[in-house]
Amino acid sequence: WEITFERNGKRITVRTTDHRLLELFEKLWRNGADERELERLAEEINR
């Protein structure tokens, strides 16, 4: 799966075969987690 999240013109794409990681990322994104931390998390998930 691949999903791109966008907020205030900032886009972060997450790619993984584990839908649970996408759900976790989406919850953090929707709850306003720090964008720098989300970028780092996305990099780890995308590996």
Results as ranks from 00 to 15, higher is better:
1 W>N: 06
25 F>T: 00
35 E>L: 15
37 E>R: 06
7 R>D: 02
1 W>K: 06
32 G>W: 06
41 L>I: 09
24 L>P: 00
17 T>H: 13
45 I>L: 06
28 L>Q: 05
19 H>V: 14
31 N>R: 07
42 A>T: 03
14 V>Q: 00
6 E>A: 03
38 L>E: 01
12 I>S: 00
2 E>T: 06
12 I>T: 02
4 T>P: 01
34 D>S: 13
8 N>P: 03
24 L>Y: 13
19 H>N: 08
2 E>Q: 08
44 E>W: 15
17 T>P: 06
10 K>V: 14
31 N>Q: 14
4 T>V: 14
47 R>L: 12
40 R>Y: 08
35 E>K: 03
9 G>T: 02
27 K>R: 13
19 H>A: 14
43 E>L: 08
2 E>K: 02
23 E>N: 10
37 E>M: 13
37 E>N: 04
15 R>S: 07
12 I>N: 00
36 R>D: 15
38 L>T: 01
42 A>I: 10
38 L>D: 00
33 A>F: 07
34 D>P: 10
22 L>A: 05
37 E>L: 13
2 E>F: 10
24 L>T: 08
25 F>I: 05
28 L>W: 12
16 T>C: 03
8 N>I: 02
44 E>S: 11
34 D>I: 15
23 E>G: 06
42 A>D: 01
36 R>L: 14
34 D>G: 09
46 N>C: 09
18 D>L: 05
19 H>T: 11
30 R>P: 01
37 E>G: 03
39 E>R: 07
47 R>V: 09
20 R>F: 12
44 E>P: 01
7 R>G: 04
43 E>D: 13
3 I>L: 13
32 G>Y: 07
26 E>L: 15
25 F>R: 00
8 N>D: 11
20 R>M: 11
24 L>E: 10
35 E>Y: 15
37 E>P: 01
21 L>G: 01
23 E>S: 14
15 R>N: 07
12 I>K: 00
7 R>L: 13
9 G>N: 07
32 G>E: 06
34 D>H: 08
12 I>Q: 01
4 T>N: 06
34 D>R: 03
44 E>H: 13
26 E>N: 08
41 L>Y: 05
35 E>V: 14
24 L>R: 08
32 G>K: 06
30 R>F: 08
10 K>R: 13
16 T>G: 10
40 R>P: 02
36 R>I: 15
45 I>P: 01
18 D>C: 09
31 N>E: 13
32 G>N: 08
2 E>C: 12
26 E>T: 12
5 F>K: 02
5 F>H: 02
3 I>H: 11
9 G>I: 00
8 N>R: 04
14 V>R: 00
40 R>A: 13
18 D>N: 13
32 G>A: 04
26 E>V: 14
26 E>C: 08
11 R>M: 11
16 T>F: 13
11 R>N: 07
45 I>T: 02
38 L>W: 09
2 E>S: 03
12 I>E: 01
9 G>K: 03
12 I>G: 00
41 L>G: 00
40 R>F: 08
31 N>K: 10
35 E>C: 08
45 I>V: 04
6 E>Y: 12
17 T>N: 15
32 G>T: 04
46 N>K: 05
8 N>V: 02
20 R>D: 09
28 L>S: 06
3 I>V: 14
17 T>A: 12
24 L>C: 09
43 E>Q: 12
